[in-house]
Every structure is written in structure tokens, then in C-alpha cells.
């Protein structure tokens, strides 16, 4: 039998939706963790490229491994708190005189959209591509930055 916590609400007794959501989220995290072999890797969105996102007090950082993609073939746009990465990886033909032992590398286009967890200052977004790793730096909007509140003694 499932045990569900009940709480007295304003209009009598009803199920607490927030604790229920919380439980669901934890359950999903647990399943996701098991799929990824417990290394803390999210199962991914199934859309190229795989992204890592991190933050510090001032910026959000979105990174993707895009080996062989020339910087001029990457298009980055922000739209209402979404970041859109578009691009194409081109692999030049090596001529008809060669024969292949292995051919594992893919060419093709990609389009990915990711929603950002905080508001960003769209005017100041920068991106660099170094050794095939793209880093998009998105400065947080002023209202999203952490503020320290001093406690005064009286």
C-alpha cells in the first residue's frame, strides 16, 4: 500500500501537492542516476550536441564538444531565456583514390534549444571555440545574481 502524507489545508484535508512533486523529482533523479552508471551523467536529451551547463555567481556556462566544427559554422542565438545552438559539421571528401579502413566520424547539421534556469543579459553573451570545445558564457541578469544581505545588530 502506498503511504501518502495528508495535510490539513485551508479548506479541509487535501493532499500536499508540493511534497508529492518533490518525491517524484527525487524518484526521477534516482532512475536517471542508475541509467548513467551512477557517474552523475544525465541521460541526455537525445539531441546533438550533448551539453554541460554550469554556473558561478556571475555567469552561466554552456559547453559542448564540437570537434571539427569550424567557428564560422556555429550560430548561437538567445531568445526569451532560451539558448539556441545551430551548426553544421562538414567533413571534406578525401578524394576518390582513397579506401577506408574505418569511418566512424559523422557529418551533418544540428539544432538544439535549451532553456536557461535564470535570466541572462542577452547583450553580453559571448562564445569561444577552443580545440573543438565550445563555451558560451551568459552573464546573469542583475536580478538573478546572488545578493548578500548583511544582518545589522541593534
Amino acid at each position: 500500500m502506498a503511504v501518502i502524507r495528508w495535510k490539513p489545508g485551508f479548506f479541509g484535508w487535501h493532499r500536499d501537492p508540493f511534497s508529492e512533486m518533490d518525491r517524484l523529482r527525487r524518484e526521477m533523479d534516482r532512475i536517471a542516476g542508475a541509467f548513467a552508471g551512477g557517474r552523475g551523467i544525465a541521460p541526455g536529451a537525445g539531441v546533438f550536441p550533448a551539453l554541460n551547463m554550469s554556473e558561478d555567481d556571475h555567469n552561466l556556462y554552456v559547453r559542448a564538444e564540437l570537434p571539427g566544427v569550424a567557428p564560422e559554422n556555429i550560430e548561437i542565438t538567445t531568445k526569451e531565456n532560451n539558448l539556441i545552438l545551430k551548426g553544421e559539421r562538414k567533413i571534406a571528401a578525401e578524394g576518390e583514390k582513397v579506401s577506408y579502413h574505418r569511418r566512424e566520424r559523422d557529418a551533418g547539421k544540428f539544432r538544439r534549444i535549451i532553456s536557461l534556469p535564470t535570466r541572462v543579459d542577452a547583450e553580453k553573451v559571448t562564445a569561444v571555440c577552443k580545440n573543438g570545445v565550445l563555451t558560451v558564457i551568459l552573464p546573469k541578469a542583475a536580478e538573478a545574481k546572488p545578493r548578500q544581505i548583511a544582518v545589522e545588530s541593534q
Binding site: 564538444e65 564540437l66 570537434p67 571539427g68 567533413i91 578525401e94 578524394g95 583514390k97 582513397v98 579506401s99 577506408y100 579502413h101 574505418r102 569511418r103 566512424e104 566520424r105 580545440n131 573543438g132 570545445v133
Partner: peptide, 22 residues
């Protein structure tokens, strides 16, 4: 790394995707 390996009469060429490697 994922690789392409191909050969012509003169040489063997290996292309390897190694993002983040300088």
C-alpha cells in the same frame, strides 16, 4: 576517440576527434 582511417597508394591518414586536446 572516433576515427576515420583511409589510405591511398602513398600514405595512410588517420583523423581522430579529440575535443579539448591542444
Amino acid at each position: 576517440p572516433t576515427v576515420d582511417i583511409f589510405e591511398s597508394e602513398q600514405e595512410i591518414t588517420v583523423l581522430a576527434d579529440m575535443p579539448g586536446v591542444a
